[in-house]
Simulated assay, not measured.
Amino acid sequence: MNFNTVIDKAIKSFWLEISIVTKSMRLDSGLNQCELGKKLTPSLSKSTISAREEGKKPIPAHQFLMFCFICGFAFEKINKQELENQHQYPDKK
């Protein structure tokens, strides 16, 4: 496995973790995708929120911080096992 392949896999894994956390925050806050999208500046569509939660579209750092603020997320609340139970990882090859 070459260096670029390792880096590509690491980046994809990072974005997948961010997407899992984003969905978990939204669910814990009781917001649906439309409600969260409207609270963001600029606002985002339900389909964009969905794509980001599924890891299909990366979340810019500033928007991730806005997600945290809007959803009232405190980093000490995170439980990795709960996050893994909410999201099925694709096969790792």
Rank of each mutant, 00 (worst) to 15 (best):
L44Q: 05
C34Y: 09
I7Y: 13
F14G: 08
K93G: 12
A61P: 03
K56G: 15
F14S: 08
F67E: 01
K92E: 02
L83I: 11
N2G: 15
K56A: 11
M1P: 08
I20Q: 08
P60L: 01
R26N: 08
I7T: 10
F3A: 08
L27S: 13
I70Q: 03
L40S: 03
F75S: 13
K93N: 12
N79A: 09
N79I: 13
Q33N: 07
Q88A: 13
M66V: 00
A61F: 13
K56Y: 13
K38D: 08
C71Q: 02
T48N: 09
Y89G: 03
I70V: 11
L40Q: 02
D8V: 08
L27T: 15
I11Y: 08
Q63H: 03
L31S: 08
P42S: 04
K9S: 14
A51L: 11
A74W: 00
A51V: 09
N4Y: 05
N85K: 15
M1V: 09
T22H: 14
P60Q: 01
K80L: 15
G55W: 01
K23Y: 03
P58K: 02
N85R: 11
R52P: 06
N79M: 06
K38T: 05
E35S: 06
Q33A: 14
M25W: 06
A61H: 02
F64Y: 03
S24Y: 15
N32S: 02
A51Y: 14
A10W: 04
S24T: 15
L16P: 03
S45G: 03
N4T: 12
D91Q: 13
Q88E: 08
N79C: 10
L40D: 06
M1R: 12
D28W: 13
C71A: 05
K93L: 10
P90L: 07
Q81V: 10
S50D: 10
F14R: 10
K46Q: 14
E53R: 04
Y89F: 14
R26P: 08
E54S: 13
L40C: 04
M66Q: 10
K9C: 09
F67N: 01
L40A: 06
G72N: 05
L40Y: 02
G37A: 06
Q88P: 02
L65V: 00
V6S: 14
D8H: 14
K38Q: 14
P60D: 02
M1Q: 14
A10D: 12
N4M: 11
E76N: 15
I78Q: 12
K46Y: 06
G72W: 00
Q81I: 12
E17T: 13
D8M: 12
K56T: 10
F14C: 03
N4Q: 15
R52H: 08
P58S: 09
L65R: 00
S24A: 15
N2Y: 03
F67H: 04
E35P: 02
M25F: 13
L36T: 05
N32G: 07
I70T: 06
E54C: 13
H87G: 00
K80P: 04
Q81C: 06
N32W: 03
F73A: 13
N32C: 05
L27H: 11
K38N: 09
F3E: 10
E54G: 13
L40E: 05
P58G: 07
K56N: 14
V21Q: 11
Q86I: 04
F64D: 00
G55P: 02
E53T: 06
